[in-house]
Amino acid sequence: MPTTERGNKQVQTSRWTSRWAMPLLVAAGFAIAWAIPRYQLINPYYELILMYVGINIILTVSLNLVNGYMGEFSVGHAGFMAVGAYVASVLTMRVIPWDVAPYLYPLALVGGGIGAGIVALFVAIPSFRTRGDYLALVTLALNMIVKSVIENIDAVGGPRGFLVFLRLTNLPWVYVWVVITLWAIRNFIYSNAGRGVLAIREDEVAAELVGVRTREVKLRAFIISAFFAGVAGGLYAHLLQFIHPRNFDILKSTEILIMVYLGGIGSMTGSILGASIFTVLLEALRFMGVWRMALAPLLLVLLMILRPTGIMGLKEWRGLVPLDERWRLLKAAARKGGQAGVAGN
């Protein structure tokens, strides 16, 4: 079979090159992320924007898991971010001795993520009995509850805000966490549970009826999403150095939503693009003052009219698909025209 042979050869060459392409790209990225602050390669202001881009990528990809891949509509992502920010900050400022904090910083971030994950668990169980609009309301309420709870905890400054004077977030850390987030969420999506997530978006009843334990899948997706929002919150807190409940209000959640839908639902490539474009655009339009805040909703409206699926819309750049899965699909494609089936047509 000539087609299959050619297919196999193609598979082999692409396998060899692509096996090393991604690791090299990731390593090169890290080298750059490390070199920029070390040798002051770029203006610190641009470096700051790069870090915001990274944090926003984490937020966008994690929200995309629930809103894009799973097709739910969660609108309170900043609530989870807030939990992560405050938990991580309390850990570095009050729990871990300051001199070792820089070394234990990843643990503090993970702690923030776990905090957000626990909150997600408590929200998810009652709210997944409902769907669609109701989940939106529940997450909206959560966002507001988290904000008011923090405002009423005097130990973390309440409405006055919380000073996090350790500036532990730097470009290499942001980069590492972006890579971890993308890697973990990619592996989740292209696993058994991830297919369950897609099935829920397509038809939840049918998913359950072909054996997908939909409650379990939803819970997992929701918690994973919240965990990374929490990590992003921790990174954000240790970059901003002064956090305030108002940093995590509905407006922040809306920004994350815009980045998700700008980039495109169900696409990590889209989320990277959406977060980058939106973050840079918002900075570039600083000269407009308050008016730039009108831009975000306007952008969302235009987007929904002109391109409702976002920039990428369910499409993924090859490089973000696990290599073994790409190889598996090529093999499946090469398998065309196997033995005759039973239907006889």
Binding site: F188, N192, R195, A199, E202, A206, A207, V210, V212, R220
Partner: peptide, 28 residues
């Protein structure tokens, strides 16, 4: 009631959910 936007292959692979036999951490 198919999963219309997913591939034919994925429609069938999803139905292997209960028999996949690996947990969340190995998947990550």
């Amino acid at each position: 009631r198919l999963f219309k936007d997913l591939t034919v292959l994925d429609n069938v692979r999803i139905a292997h959910y209960k028999g996949a036999g690996y947990g969340l951490w190995p998947a990550f």
